[in-house]
Design a protein around this nucleic acid. Structure first.
Length: 111
DNA sequence: CGCAGTCTAGCAC
DNA sequence: GTGCTAGACTGCG
């Protein structure tokens, strides 16, 4: 069905780009911000992430506080996050709640 | 701990 | 062009 649906993915990347350094977000937050429940679709879009350096897909983690996955490898994702100031133990974020970033502001302020 | 739900992208026919 | 499968998740039992 030739779905010219670039809105979903584009929005995903757009939201992700709004995530500041030293902060992380969850797939749910993105899906929720997009107004959908396709957490997996978000991860899928990020896996194919055409905006690799443009979109910090490594700043996206699971809602459980785990890293989740990464096209280049979980370890790489962790190292990148740690460099940004995020503390990670094994495959889980320590200050997850503290490093977690929400798209609330963009929904209210719509910057 | 395991199953079901939800959406998009890619491959096959 | 249409249909089916897979995938970086989440919530409930």
């Amino acid at each position: 069905m030739m779905k010219s649906v670039k809105s979903f993915r584009e929005k995903c990347y757009n939201l992700l780009k709004k995530v500041p350094s030293g902060r992380v977000t969850t797939y749910k937050a993105i899906a929720n911000a997009l107004g959908t429940r396709a957490y997996r679709a978000v991860g899928n879009a990020l896996h194919k992430n055409p905006h690799a350096p443009l979109v910090p897909c490594h700043r996206v983690v699971k809602s459980s506080g785990e890293i989740g996955g990464f096209a280049l490898g979980i370890k790489k994702k962790i190292e990148m996050l740690q460099k940004e100031g995020i503390k990670i133990r094994e495959n889980k974020i320590i200050n997850f709640a503290g490093s977690l970033y929400k798209f609330c502001c963009i929904f209210f302020v719509k910057g």
